[in-house]
């Protein structure tokens, strides 16, 4: 179909690209089992750095804080992002819609340093005038994360709403369902996969964020990325390799399982649709 030369080129680019993406991660994992304290110099196989990692209370605290923030953030961001997406796609024009649309999509193109700095200034100003937040940490980081993650959720929801069209919602109205009823019976169930995707995205965005969190945090509140950053800034550390290994392997497993389940459902559905087409021939 296409000249073999171009196929070979594409294939080699694909292989190179995948190697480029995965060899560094693979080496990260390999060196986590290095007995030597100097990361890039191989000193024999050992799991001692995992032990060091697990024994560090600091790591556990940071992980707990990060997960806590990520969970709360993901839930609120999904809620707010879904509302924002619904408002932007389904409500036609309302007062201040342009401003709203701009505000909802702006965090996507905003450099993190700006978001972080401006939110910190807000928290300081708020403290001056209303006495809150008294101490920066969990609450301020979560608020900051919700603000930018809800933009991502809103984008997913918006594209899904646009993609699914209004026909099903009109059909429900036609059958006597009031708008709120339509939302509950039709729109939200159909949005569920999008909301799940949004939740997962918000969760990882929050777990991953270093810059914004380090602006709006206060003394004593270290998230996992902040802990990692403070350690690796000074050079390579084998216990961070161990941590990276755990994260990468966990994610791989989760994605592989999710992918497998989705693939099976898709296959099942395709098979059923195949069977269904014979119905007309009776």
């Amino acid at each position: 179909m296409v000249k073999r030369g171009s196929s070979t080129f594409l294939l080699s680019m694909l292989c190179f690209g995948m190697a480029f993406l995965y060899v560094p991660m693979f080496l990260l994992i390999v060196y986590s089992f290095n007995n030597s304290k100097i990361v890039p110099v191989w000193g024999g196989f050992s799991t001692r750095w995992y032990k060091v990692l697990f024994e560090s209370e600091e790591v556990w605290n940071a992980l707990a804080l990060s997960v806590k923030i990520a969970l709360v953030n993901a839930s609120f961001a999904t809620l707010l992002g879904t509302l924002a997406g619904l408002a932007l796609v389904r409500f036609g024009s309302f007062r201040g819609r342009t401003l709203f649309g701009g505000m909802v999509s702006a965090p996507l193109v905003m450099p993190e340093v700006i978001t972080g700095l401006s939110l910190l200034m807000l928290f300081i100003t708020l403290k001056e005038f209303v006495g809150w937040p008294d101490k920066r940490g969990f609450a301020t980081i979560t608020i900051a994360h919700i603000t930018f993650s809800m933009a991502y959720v809103a984008v997913i929801i918006q594209s899904r709403l646009t993609g699914m069209g209004t026909t099903l919602e009109e059909a429900a109205q036609d059958l006597g369902a009031r708008p709120l009823r339509v939302l509950v019976d039709i729109t939200l169930p159909l949005l569920a996969p999008g909301m799940l995707a949004g939740w997962l995205l918000a969760f990882t965005l929050s777990l991953d964020d270093l810059v914004i969190a380090s602006f709006v945090t206060g003394p004593g509140s270290n998230t996992l990325p902040m802990l990692i950053y403070s350690r690796v800034r000074l050079g390579l550390r084998p216990d961070i390799n161990a941590l990276a290994t755990i994260i990468i392997v966990t994610v791989m497993f989760a994605v592989a399982i999710a992918g497998w389940i989705m693939m099976r459902q898709q296959k099942q559905k395709e098979r059923e649709m195949q069977l269904a087409t014979t119905g007309d021939a009776q």
């Binding site: 991953d208 270093l210 690796v232 961070i240 990276a244 994260i247």
Partner: peptide, 9 residues
């Protein structure tokens, strides 16, 4: 996976 850790790699 973590952005920070990919840079670290």
């Amino acid at each position: 996976t973590s952005f920070l850790l990919r840079v670290y790699a």
